[in-house]
Each structure stands twice: as structure tokens, then as C-alpha cells.
Amino acid sequence: MGTIAEQSTALRMSTLRLARRLRAERVDPSLSDGQFAVLGWLHKRGPLTLTQLAEHERVSAPSMNRTVNCLEESGYLVREADEADRRRSNIRLTEAGRDIVTTTLKQRDAWLTTRLRDLSKEDRATLARAAELMGDLATL
């Protein structure tokens, strides 16, 4: 099994390879990972301000503005004036934005489901437990 340091390296590398492979499963290949992350966040949380999106993605407001502009030009989201403060805009998904997120997530799940079917029942149980543990690690 190796040392804890070796196990950490193996886990990190495997996790990154799997994440990279899952990210490759996307409906619109022109979308960057950062752009899809913004769409995913809006899909999960609903309308947000530019500042909220920038904070979540840990980027500057001007950088997020460029991302939002690109996604807006692609028809995946729109900006709407905030009802309480007309100087502020809320950014929300369009129907096309919702579709690209849900279809991409289904495509990613289908890819992973196909790979899991090739594993034994015991290996799938091991991965299910590992997923729980990884979720716990991520919240520490």
C-alpha cells in the first residue's frame, strides 16, 4: 500500500485523471472548464451577481465579466437588473444554458456508468465507499 505520502500522491493523481476525463465529456466542446463551472453554479444556485460568481470561482470581477460576456454571447445566460438595486445585475441561465448543463451532466454520468459496469460488484462497493470518504475529505 505504500506510505501515507505515496497513497496521497496516488489518490491525487487518480482523482485528477478521472476528473479530467469526466470534464472531456461535454456537449459543447467550445466551452472551457471555467465557463462550464459558471453554468453549473448558476444551475445549482439560481441567479447570482457577477461578484458572487467571481468569489465562488476565485477570480477577479473583470475576469468573470469576460467569462459572463462570452456565455451571454453564446446564449447560455442573461443579465437582468436587480429589482432591489437597479445598479446591480443578476445573472441567470437561459433555457439553452440549462439544457447544456443537464445534457452534459447526463453524458458524464453515462460515461461513468458504462465504466462502472465493467467492474465487479465488490469493486463498485469499494468505489462507493471511497466516494463517501472523498466527500468527507473535501469538507475537512
Rank of each mutant, 00 (worst) to 15 (best):
Q52N: 09
E6L: 10
L71K: 02
R87C: 03
D118S: 15
A37F: 10
L127A: 03
R26K: 15
S120G: 01
L18P: 00
A138Y: 07
R17C: 04
E83T: 07
L77E: 01
I100C: 04
T113R: 14
L31C: 01
D99G: 04
L31M: 02
L71H: 06
R129H: 15
L77C: 00
M64Q: 14
G135L: 06
R58C: 04
L133W: 10
R21N: 10
A96N: 14
V27P: 05
A125D: 15
L42T: 00
L16V: 07
K44I: 06
L11S: 04
L127N: 01
A125S: 15
G97W: 06
V78F: 12
R117V: 09
D136S: 12
R124H: 10
D118Y: 09
T67P: 09
T114P: 03
K106A: 12
T3E: 01
S60L: 06
A128I: 08
R26A: 03
T3H: 01
L127M: 07
L18D: 03
A125V: 07
R26G: 02
I4Y: 03
R23E: 13
E6G: 06
L105P: 02
R86H: 03
I100S: 11
M134R: 10
W41A: 08
Y76R: 11
Q107C: 05
L105W: 10
H43L: 06
Q7C: 08
A130M: 15
S14K: 12
S74E: 14
Q7G: 07
V38N: 02
Q35F: 08
L22V: 03
L140A: 10
A96M: 08
A24K: 06
A131W: 09
R12S: 11
M13A: 13
T114L: 08
H43R: 10
V59F: 07
L31N: 01
M13N: 14
V78R: 15
G40T: 11
C70L: 10
R58Q: 15
S32D: 05
D123P: 05
R23D: 14
R86M: 05
T139A: 13
L48I: 04
E132T: 06
